[in-house]
Each structure stands twice: as C-alpha cells, then as structure tokens.
C-alpha cells in the first residue's frame, strides 16, 4: 500500500470522507482557540498597542498564501510526471483558497500598516511581492476557467504554475533590489518572528496550525467536489451518446 494508491479517485474520496471530519473539527477548534486566545488573552505590545493582535491573522494567512502556491507546484509536477487526475484537480482546488489567503494577508497588512506606518500601502518588497503573487493566482485561475477540455487545462495550468513559480521567485529578488534602489535605508520589516515574546508566540502557533488544518480540509473537500463534477460530466456525455 503506497501513497500512490490514493491517486485512484474512488480511493481518494473514501479516504477523504473518513479524514475530512477530523480535519474540519481540528481546524475549527484550533482557529477558535487560537484567535480567542490571541484576541482576548494576550497583552498589548508596548510599542504597537493592540494592533499586535492582527498578527494572529496576518502571519498565518501570509504563510498559507505561499504554502498554497508551493502545494500547487508540487501537485502540478505530480500531474505532469505521473498523470494522476486527482493531483491536477487538487491543484485547481487549492488556487481559490490561496487567493483568499493572499487577500487576507494583504487586507490585514494594510489595516495594520495604517496606524503603524501611517499609510495603508507602501511599496515595501514584501507587500509588493504579495501583490504579484496575487496576480499569479488570478492568471492561474483564469487559465483554468478559459479552457474547456479538462486534460488540456490541467496540462497548461501545470506548465504555467512551473514557469510562474520561477518568475515569482525572480520577482521577489527583483522587487527587493528595486525598493532598495528607490529609498535607501528605509526598512519596514514585517517580520516580527525574532522579537516575538512567548506570550504572543504560542497562540500564534495555534493559529498557524488552525490555518494549515483549514487549508487541508478545504483542499480535500474541494478536490472531492472537482472529482464529482468531472464524473458527472463524463456520465452526462455518455448519456448524450446513448
């Protein structure tokens, strides 16, 4: 019994039917515990005041925005190499989740930036990279929507995902370079990882776990939906011929 057994759609559906309730439950539990803990029971930062509470949404969603793309990249590679339909559909299912994560990261970032930096938006390397990542997500989803034949769409989006990943990394470096060139010395670091105290750190970990679990649950569920949609279409096509 290897992992590849679950490339069979029926096996995949059976497995996901068994584990999905667990993931949904854990995700909701972690999110509720983490967010309530973060919102009600953590102290304010002495410099940032209560805005530090935004970290419990901002950091996990930003992480998941990138992780979702990485997961799509891996799934695309598996599809291109081993031609497992479940893999291609999982990549398709993950994209909208990634978009929402990117949006949350951008929105919470803007809301946090307003009182802290005095501006909703700065062309800081990290912010800019996320905006570009958002554009990549949009292009990827648009390509899925535009092509009717599912296998062609899976192939083309996979190629786009591979090329897009390379260019996303390139853009990240380009943006770093560009901003340094623009305003020297002005550094807005969003990365509080190093100086976060334990009081903030543990609820943050719980929230990250919650976002990861929620992502897994959503992707499993959405992949199942895509499998059913495709099977419905196949059956309808057969009916049409009969």
């Amino acid at each position: 019994m290897s992992l590849w057994e679950y490339a069979n759609p029926v096996r995949f559906l059976n497995l996901s039917a068994r584990v999905l309730p667990v993931f949904w439950g854990l995700a909701v539990a972690c999110l509720i515990v983490g967010l309530i803990w973060g919102f009600f029971f953590t102290p304010d930062d002495f410099r940032q005041g209560s805005t530090v509470k935004i970290i419990y949404l901002h950091v996990p969603s930003a992480m998941m925005a990138i992780n979702a793309w990485v997961m799509m990249l891996v799934a695309s590679l598996i599809w291109l190499v081993r031609r497992h339909h479940v893999s291609a559909l999982a990549a398709k299912a993950a994209a909208p989740v990634g978009v929402v994560m990117t949006l949350i990261a951008l929105f919470t970032g803007a809301i946090w930036g307003q009182p802290m930096w005095g501006t909703w938006w700065a062309w800081d390397p990290r912010l800019t990279s996320f905006l570009i990542l958002f554009l990549f997500y949009l292009g990827y989803i648009a390509l899925w929507e535009a092509i009717e034949d599912p296998d062609t769409a899976a192939d083309l989006t996979s190629v786009l995902c591979l090329v897009g990943s390379v260019f996303a990394v390139l853009s990240r470096y380009a943006v770093n370079f560009w901003n340094q060139g623009l305003h020297q010395g002005a550094s807005l670091s969003l990365d509080k990882e190093e100086n976060v105290a334990d009081v903030f750190y543990i609820p943050l970990l719980v929230c990250i776990a919650g976002f990861v679990l929620l992502f897994i649950a959503l992707v499993l569920y959405r992949t199942g939906t895509e499998i059913r949609l495709r099977r419905t279409r196949a059956l309808q096509a057969r009916e049409g011929r009969a």
Binding site: I132, G139, A142, A146, F167, L170, S171, W178
Partner: peptide, 26 residues
C-alpha cells in the same frame, strides 16, 4: 498557452503581465 482559447487576448495579458515584472523592474 492561450492559442486554443477563443478571444484569448485579455487572458493573454493577464498571464503575461506578471511574468514581465522582473524584466520591467530591472
């Protein structure tokens, strides 16, 4: 990528523009 899509011009722009970012920046 978009050659098989009817009226793919807009889609083409959406796909290509993010890929142009590094070239444009440098």
């Amino acid at each position: 990528l978009t050659v098989g899509v009817k009226r793919g011009g807009l889609l083409l722009s959406l796909l290509v523009l993010p890929l142009y970012v590094p070239t444009l920046i440098f």
